[in-house]
Each structure stands twice: as structure tokens, then as C-alpha cells.
Design a protein around this nucleic acid. Structure first.
Lengths: 214, 214
DNA sequence: GAATTAACTTAACGACGTTCAGTGAACGGC
DNA sequence: GCCGTTCACTGAACGTCGTTAAGTTAATTC
């Protein structure tokens, strides 16, 4: 009989409820608002019940972000079809920026917060995790650009170049997420800043001149 | 008689002791290790005594970082003498990167952590704060470069361009600070990545070709 | 129908930031 | 030299947090 399967299904269901409640708190009020007790309250369980489904609070947050980051990986996958590596870089950057600005709390937790020895596998599945996917995608794109002879001749290390490109978009969005409320800077729309920086970076990386330059 | 002056001096002294103890914990073990009780323990006072000298924990951290960030402002001041704005940008970027990597916990707190409505002036002096100084310095340098006609003709907004430049160096160092322990990326030395990115960005921003290009 | 197992709860621990009601010593005026 | 005031400080406490231990209850298995 299927009691085992039903149990499994029920477990999955309340696991989902926990993640949904946590997500709601996280998106609306940020990390500090996600407490075990508040999650529990929303799903009408006790706080300790969560520990039957997740190792600890970090595991909840990681599972939460994993799920949402799959969307980013998915969007990059679509871009994967564009044949020009440079154009692919540009499109990836835009998708990345859009994702970060639409999910600032996720982004903060995943890319702006150090996680002590994140991956001893206690934290769930995470085979070929979404971050790694996105990173591998960018690295691969840069490597292709290098192989195709599109970049300046001294740029031979795909890791180095890809980390620079990642750094540039990450810098713009993370600065915005962390400091947009500080009014000693007259902030420009981050998407515009990112567009400008990507443009400048790509111009600076590619071999020779880009068309339309003055 | 100078009892008032002596009192003042003594207050300043223990204020300094609090900051020193907090700094030690902060630098060695990061934000979470800085607790009122641990600070108190180190200076052999009760935790509540700290509240006689600082409004709350945030005020301690802010005072702490303010003091250290003055060093960064000071180093940028030295660079201020270099006449070529582009060269000045490059040197500022290097100084900024060095500071961030030497003071990762400070950097994290100041530039990677959102602070809820930071500046209602309850937080101490902070007139023309150090961050603002560093920012004003970069913005001014970019503005000079634009005025001198060194940048491409469509780059007319100093805020936009300066935010892009800031974003690029910030991105590299903050990514390193947050994720250097994640081994799904084969990290390159952040100073090298920053150097490459600054180089590419500057190449992409300036008018015409830079000497030595292929 | 008894024994087992799984899901869940209540109570508690030790930490945190912070507040409140004191305490005792130094000070200033007489 | 005494006395009221001010000041720096303390101990206990509040309410929060993540997490653990022990106990309860219900469904399943034999």
C-alpha cells in the first residue's frame, strides 16, 4: 500500500509550506524578519516542527534561494542560443542585473553574505548548484570569446576575465542594494549604470575598435 | 579647577577603550563576535556601562569604522596631487582595493550591509563623513576627466560614470570578501582581477585608443 | 489489541541587545 | 566638616533569538 508514498508527499507538502512562509517574510522584510517562530506562526505549527524538515535556519534559507535561483539559471539557458559570445555576455549581464534587482534579499543572502563553509553537503541536494550553473555559463561564454579571438591578445585566462566581468555587474547591483538609501550619493538607476559599465568593459576587452565609436 | 576637563578626558579614555576592544573583536572575528557583553568583558566593565558612552551597538560599530575609514580618505588625499585624472582614477582604485582587502570586516559593514536610515545624526559627528569624502573624490576626478575631454563624447554625466567606476572595483572586492571560501569558483587574486577590470573599463571609457593596444 | 514509529508540542537553555532601579563615590556650597 | 547633588557604574531583568530535550498523540504494523 502507498502509506509510505503518502507520508513522503505530506512531508514534501509541509516542506513547501515552510519555504513559502519563509519566502514571504524574506522577500517582504529581509533576513532578520525570517525567524523560526514567525515562520511557524504563519503555517500554524510550532517552531520546533521546522527542525523535522530542515537542519537549521540556514538550511531553510539555502533551500529557499536555491529554488529561486533556478529561475536565473533558466533564463541564462535561453540566452545560451545566441551565437555571438560578446552579445551573449551582454544579454547575460542584463538578465543578471534584472534578477538581482527583482530579488534583492535573495541576492544579498547569496552573493553579499559570507557563508561559513557552505557546502559540506549537509545542506541538501545542490548537485551542480544554480550559482555554479550561472558561473559556469559566464565562464564558458568568456572562454568561447577568447577562443574565437574576439578579445585582446593578452587576455588569455578565462577565469580572470570572467571574474572581472562578474565583478562589474555584481558591483553595480550590490552597491545599489546595500546603499541606495544613503543620500550622500545622487544615485543613478542601477540598470543604467550597469549598462554603461558593461559597455565600457566590453569595449575595453575586445580586440580593436567597436563600430560606432568616436 | 579642571575637574570637568578631567571628567571629559576620562570619558574619552574609556570611549577609546570600548572602541579598541570592539575593533579587536571585529577585525579578528567579524560582526557577530562583537557583542556588548564581550566588549564589556575585555575592558572589565559591565555591558550596560557601554550605553553610557554609545547610544547602542550600531553606534559603536559606526564610530569604529568612521575612525578607520579616515585612513582611506587620507590616502586618497595624497593621490589628489596627481594631475592626470585618468591616472588618478587608477591610483584611487588601487588604494581602494588595498583598503578593502586589508579591512574586510570594516568593508563588509560599511559597503555590503544595508543600514536602516543611517544618518539621522544621532550617530555622532559624521560631518562630511569619510565615505562621502572618498565618493566626492572619485566623482570629482571623473568630472575633471569629462571636462578635460578625455572621455568618449556621450559620457557627460559624472555621477553615472563615477558610479560605474566605483561599482567595478567594489564588485571585485566585495565578491572576494563574500565568496572567497566557495570553491566552485577557481578564484584569481582579487587585486589582479581589479587591475584587469580597471584597465578594461578605462580603455572603454576614454576617447580614442590607448597607446600600446593591439 | 499491543508495540512501534512518526509527527508534533511544550518547556527550557543559553545567548543576544537593551532597560530599569538601584549604589556608592566624588564633588560643590555652606 | 557636613549635606545634597551629580555622575559613573552595576545587577537583575525583559523580550527576543536559534536550538535541544523530553513528552504527547496519533497512525501504522504485526
Amino acid at each position: 500500500m502507498g502509506t509510505k508514498e503518502r507520508r513522503e508527499r505530506e512531508r514534501e507538502e509541509i516542506r513547501g509550506k515552510i519555504l513559502d512562509a519563509a519566502r514571504e517574510l524574506f522577500v517582504q522584510e529581509g533576513y532578520d524578519a525570517v525567524t523560526m517562530r514567525r515562520i511557524a506562526e504563519r503555517i500554524e505549527y510550532s517552531a520546533t516542527a521546522i527542525y523535522l524538515h530542515f537542519k537549521d535556519k540556514r538550511a531553510v534559507l539555502i533551500a529557499l534561494c536555491d529554488a529561486d535561483f533556478l529561475r536565473l539559471a533558466g533564463e541564462l539557458q535561453k540566452i545560451g542560443r545566441v551565437e555571438d559570445p560578446i552579445e551573449r555576455m551582454r544579454l547575460s549581464g542584463r538578465a543578471y542585473v534584472r534578477f538581482a534587482l527583482e530579488n534583492p534579499n535573495h541576492y544579498r543572502w547569496m552573493f553579499m553574505t559570507p557563508h561559513p563553509e557552505l557546502d559540506p553537503k549537509d545542506s541538501g541536494i545542490r548537485v551542480g548548484n544554480p550559482e555554479e550553473d550561472a558561473w559556469a555559463f559566464l565562464r564558458g561564454t568568456v572562454a568561447e570569446a577568447i577562443e574565437a579571438g574576439l578579445l585582446r591578445s593578452e587576455l588569455t585566462d578565462p577565469d580572470l576575465v570572467a571574474q572581472a566581468v562578474w565583478g562589474s555587474v555584481h558591483g553595480v547591483v550590490s552597491l545599489h542594494i546595500a546603499k541606495c538609501n544613503d543620500d550622500w550619493v545622487d544615485w543613478r538607476p542601477p540598470a543604467e549604470v550597469a549598462e554603461l559599465l558593461m559597455d565600457a568593459t566590453i569595449r575595453g576587452l575586445v580586440r580593436g575598435l567597436l563600430r560606432g565609436e568616436d
